[in-house]
Amino acid sequence: MPTPFEVQRHPTETRLAVRGSLDINTAPSLAEEIDAIIATRPPKVIVDLSGLDLIDSSGVAALVKLYKGVRGANGTVAITGARDQPLAIFKLLRMDKVFNL
């Protein structure tokens, strides 16, 4: 069951929109895309979670990997649109401040 996600690459930024459920079953397919994004060393990545309904620790780990990978190459990451259960998880893990949610 693939995660519904969409990547748009522009010269100045990369946009990743994630929808539905990002969990232990769907995160691996997104992780491959994340590896590909990191490999391009994008200056700016915008992660749109407005369509994300559910996340578990595996999904969080995938997003952390993206964040660290892009930041490690001196890029910036903006995570936007988190709501409901995903936002509750980020707050519980105290990642909301790091991600500026």
Partner: peptide, 19 residues
């Protein structure tokens, strides 16, 4: 989990039981 999270200490695993 670490008490204070920053970019360097963001965990990539071990969060499930904590959640």
């Amino acid at each position: 989990l670490p008490n204070e999270l920053d970019e360097d200490s963001l965990p990539e695993g071990g969060m499930g039981i904590h959640i």
